[in-house]
Nucleic acid binder design. Structure first.
Lengths: 398, 398
DNA sequence: TTAATTTAAGCAATCGATTGCGATAAAAAT
DNA sequence: ATTTTTATCGCAATCGATTGCTTAAATTAA
């Protein structure tokens, strides 16, 4: 057995590209020796391993031939359906096990005209929120014997289009999507509908498009957050906002404005910062905000908790006391918000539940009744999690 | 369009189960009304939507028929392969677009005898490490036009077996797996090999099994971590260890022991705590350790950063100064380790790179050369990230 | 004992794309 | 003008499972 040890990042990236190199060729040489050995001393198991590769998998025809039966009977016995005598069924099941038979889902699905698979397209698989949603979807689909095909658009709509096409080709039973950040055109979503594939959008959606949707009530959540800030006595509340081509960020801004209006707090344009999505951008914007002649006394990082973290770090570095001198509220309830000091007030989106809701929407509303395909919208109200970073009046808290 | 608003956790779990309820039936009633409307006023697009469901998708035969050609020509034109005149090719491509043709991958793969799909089984999709690895795999497979089918075993080997069977049925080109926590039996992995499906194990592997493996050098990483602790002057170093049926935890323990031996530090059994995987268990073990007559002056939470976080919280609560009175080292380089106070020393596993390595291993070593299937092991050396939680000698650090 | 009914199993078409082989016509070579 | 080559395209089998229909056998009823 060969063993490669990689110890530096450089080597890893080399490995990732896997260019032919000295090491690799050396390995090949070693390999050839091994192969020779294999053919000379006839170890049975090794040989079997190799034969296995050229060997075709057993089909229902193999089972049928062995038992002098017709493939149709084998199929029926295996699908446990009808019109097979108990005796032959047992016979078939036994030989199936003996021959190590596994169904070919490709053939089965082709014939049956559907594919028990749900395709999921998200901007990034390894982003907490999306990973959670996917886990939730998987939890439910697994129970139903469905599989999940996962694609990531990497926040690029060009790539998103390709993912959509692949999934259409795969004849998936349903496509679940959350749009990439540079979303503009919904032609690819139309294509999905044109092919009769149920479409469920979640979180980042094309609002005008008439499809199933599972949403967070971003506006209400923002209202709650900003209201909380106001009730804590903050007067000048800044907003870090995300790309306005995405519905979620528009809604969060709307909520911010609505809350200010509700409490008759004037809207100050200089306190609204665009494009403060990441920790770095959040930090950047914070510096600008705090250097204003009249700086804010609270910042609502509506884009993400990472942004809020950037805010917190800058504030700490500038010697501002949080929450006394600056209130900070994030969005998403990332795990770390609980353990920063002070802990960060944020909004929980029930991401795993959201995934389950999505899957259940498919099974209960789409898969079951063929005709009744009137797109529904399910909105989940996120929950404000109040923590130290906004808790001026300690009496109110825990 | 219907709109459901969910506002409490209770309602969400209700929605997840989707029991028929008042609300649901009310929605149905509303729906029926809508349907009636639809049938009375013949909105063309709505009608089209409904027809779409019953309408079969266009196949190469449809294109062939329309052009008075044979399906084989259409197939050849579409696959861009051979023996089709430029004129008819253009004709075919145009009508394909016109008829909104999409290939049926099921049929194609069935005929070609393979499925450009890689199956991935992980304990939990929404765990940073695994999500990162999956993202890395996807990054590479996407480039190659392969798809990813993701399953989660939920740390249960029973479920893992089912996932394996599904993937075998799907005729995936390769199975990538990281074992569940209760791993004992490898029969299902044998089955994969018996079906001639390449198997790549990563991180948590069955060591004795002769398959491709992509590993982290856990032992070396632990040696580095514990050596670092010793060099920082810690004398009584405790270990929080994970389930010993998993190779990774055995190796981490081995590294711990090796480092102690190297520095001739005696091994004290009372400083080794089993099963301290989660934050809660880590905290629990820490309480026990710190209540010893001779408590440790450092704790290596080899299970995870979450465990280390538990340690930190207990230490802080007990008024112990970190790193002066207690050194803490975690494992995995979770995002939060950087922002705790003090920040936590940990070990980075290059998870995304690891995913890329896995995928490249498949493409370069397995897919390319059919015969040369001698399992290789790629070992990636993780990197110790020294942070404040173990930095007694400030001079050494940054 | 014969007719009616049930049960079990086979036959053959089907899902949609691919591909080796053969046929035809056009182009090139002799 | 005839033969050879080449370019196009059609034919039909194939991948493996499913399923409606038919037939043969077995069981029951008359």
């Amino acid at each position: 057995m060969l063993h490669l040890v990689i110890s530096t990042i450089g080597e890893i990236s080399w490995l990732c590209q896997f260019k032919t190199s000295l090491l690799l060729s050396r390995r090949r040489a070693a390999l050839n020796n091994l192969k020779k050995e294999q053919w000379t001393n006839n170890e049975p198991n090794k040989k079997q391993d190799i034969l296995m590769k050229n060997q075709k998998r057993t089909t229902i025809y193999d089972i049928a031939k062995k038992l002098n039966l017709n493939a149709s009977s084998v199929s029926r016995a295996l699908s446990n359906n009808s019109n097979v005598s108990e005796a032959t069924r047992k016979l078939i099941l036994d030989t199936a096990k003996e021959l190590n038979y596994k169904q070919n889902s490709l053939a089965s699905n082709l014939r049956k005209g559907h594919n028990q698979t749900i395709g999921v397209i998200v901007p990034r698989i390894n982003q907490n929120y999306f990973a959670d949603v996917i886990a939730g979807i998987e939890e439910v689909t697994y129970q139903k014997g469905y599989n999940l095909v996962i694609c990531q658009s990497n926040e690029s709509s060009a790539r998103e289009v390709k993912c959509v096409n692949t999934l259409i080709n795969q004849h998936v039973s349903c496509i679940v999507i959350s749009l990439s950040a540079d979303f503009e055109d919904d032609k690819h979503l139309q294509t999905i509908k044109e092919h009769g594939i149920p479409l469920i959008q979640f979180d980042r959606v094309a609002e005008h498009l008439d499809t199933f949707k599972v949403l967070n009530d971003n506006e209400q959540a923002s209202i709650d957050a900003v209201s909380h800030l106001i009730e804590q006595g903050y007067k000048r509340i800044a907003l870090l906002e995300g790309p306005q081509n995405l519905n979620i960020f528009r809604q969060r801004k709307a909520g911010y404005l609505a809350a200010l209006k509700k409490y008759k707090v004037p809207v100050l344009p200089e306190l609204i910062k665009e494009n403060a999505w990441t920790k770095e951008l959040g930090a950047e914007s914070t510096k600008e905000l705090l250097n204003l002649a009249e700086p804010p006394d609270a910042i609502f990082a509506s884009t993400s908790d990472f942004s809020a973290l950037g805010v917190l770090e800058v504030a700490t570095k500038m010697g501002l006391k949080v929450p006394e001198e600056l209130g900070i509220c994030g969005y998403s309830n990332e795990a770390f918000t609980e353990i920063t000091s002070p802990s960060i007030t944020t909004i929980d989106q029930y991401s795993v539940s959201m995934g389950k809701t999505i899957a259940n929407l498919y099974f209960q509303e789409i898969e079951s009744s063929e005709k009744d395909n009137n797109p529904k919208i399910v909105s989940i109200k996120p929950k404000l999690i109040v923590r130290s970073s906004t808790l001026r009046n300690k009496t109110e808290g825990y």
